[in-house]
């Protein structure tokens, strides 16, 4: 690899919960342009999963465990970046040529950008190359109305990638495109169909060009206030349900479909890795609000842990009720589990 002259380019990949950030990240990491990328992943959840999903693509994936980048761990972010750079210089990890930060779906990216630009050491080693934001073409308009975080993400982006175009109608995607253009006229708007993006987008994201946006440090620093409390008073809760026994797929699918039908608006994100009866390999599930994606088979377990973990990010749903409900459905298939909490 050619030695990098000057600061390494850094891409911030943001986008609302379930809008396809990790899918895009996997595409990028599988491309030749990004073969030399180190990745920092931040998730707002008790148990992070995204780093497991991308681990087989890069040895340099790090999960920031302590919560949301946007309001609590700017220190954690700068420390993680400094640690990556130090390990790179010592030869402890591959000599990466660029860095990607995947933010939590709830992050306001401006404090992250401020950290990168204002940190006394980082600003000499890293430079912001791009801010890319994924926007769900199906739910984007509704999310814009409900979630101010999304507006901040769109406003900060150099590239907006409309995802799930295969699921959206032409009219609604055009309406969303116009709205995004109005919100951020300077951003390029691309699209992803079935998770695939135009190769030229990958090339443009991978181009080691100068940053295309400038955020005034003081303005960015002024917006550090937590954004997880909804204006209507409903808190965003995050919890994980762990199941040690293999789950019956039919019972789980019926439960999740009914939960999404009845409480989809409150179900900001559901993501899980499942150990399913009849399969030795894990199954990955993704969902956002009413939308649940086809389950995905993974080729191997990411760790020795063979339990199922399902992470929920929800508005006003109580963990206890959700877990009781799931276990009740699973007992329908296996009465032997009766008595389990």
């Amino acid at each position: 690899m050619e030695p990098e002259a000057g600061p390494l380019p850094l891409i911030v990949l943001t986008g609302f919960l379930g809008s396809g950030k990790t899918t895009l990240l996997r595409r990028l990491l599988a491309s030749t342009e990004f073969h030399d990328a180190a990745v920092l992943i931040n998730e707002f959840g008790a148990v992070g999963l995204d780093h497991l999903i991308v681990r087989n693509l890069t040895d340099s994936a790090v999960l920031l465990q302590s919560g949301c980048v946007c309001c609590s761990i700017r220190g954690d972010l700068s420390e993680a970046l400094m640690q990556l750079l130090t390990q790179r210089d010592r030869g402890e990890i591959p000599r990466f040529g660029r860095v990607i930060i995947e933010t939590t779906g709830l992050a306001d990216p401006s404090p992250i950008l401020a950290t990168l630009m204002c940190h006394p050491a980082l600003r000499h080693h890293l430079r912001l190359a791009k801010v890319a934001a994924t926007v769900d073409a199906v739910l984007g308009e509704a999310n814009l109305d409900r979630h101010p975080e999304l507006i901040k993400q769109i406003a900060a982006a150099d590239h907006l990638i409309l995802t799930k175009m295969d699921l959206a109608s032409r009219e609604s995607s055009e309406r969303l495109r116009r709205r995004l253009s109005a919100l951020n006229p300077a951003a390029a708007i691309d699209q992803a169909i079935y998770g695939r993006v135009d190769p030229s987008l990958i090339a443009r994201l991978g181009a080691r060009s100068a940053p295309t946006m400038v955020v005034a440090g003081e303005e960015a620093s002024a917006s550090f206030a937590p954004t997880h409390q909804r204006p209507a008073g409903q808190p965003v809760s995050s919890f994980v349900i762990t199941l040690s026994e293999p789950v019956d797929w039919a019972a789980f699918g019926l439960w999740l479909s009914l939960l999404a039908y009845k409480h989809g608006a409150a179900l900001l994100r559901v993501k899980g890795i499942l150990r399913v009866v009849g399969s030795d390999l894990p199954v990955l599930i993704h969902g956002v609000q009413h939308l649940i994606h086809l389950p995905e088979h993974l080729s191997a377990w990411p760790s020795e842990d063979r339990s199922s973990h399902v992470v929920f990010i929800a508005l006003g749903l109580e963990r206890q009720a959700v877990e009781r409900s799931l276990r009740k459905f699973l007992r329908l298939e296996n009465p032997a589990l009766r008595g389990a909490a």
Partner: peptide, 20 residues
Amino acid sequence: MCGLCGIFGDSRHWSDEIVR
């Protein structure tokens, strides 16, 4: 596919997928 109406794109529902 949408958990609300289940008819975005085709008539298959995500839970129809047999996980084996």
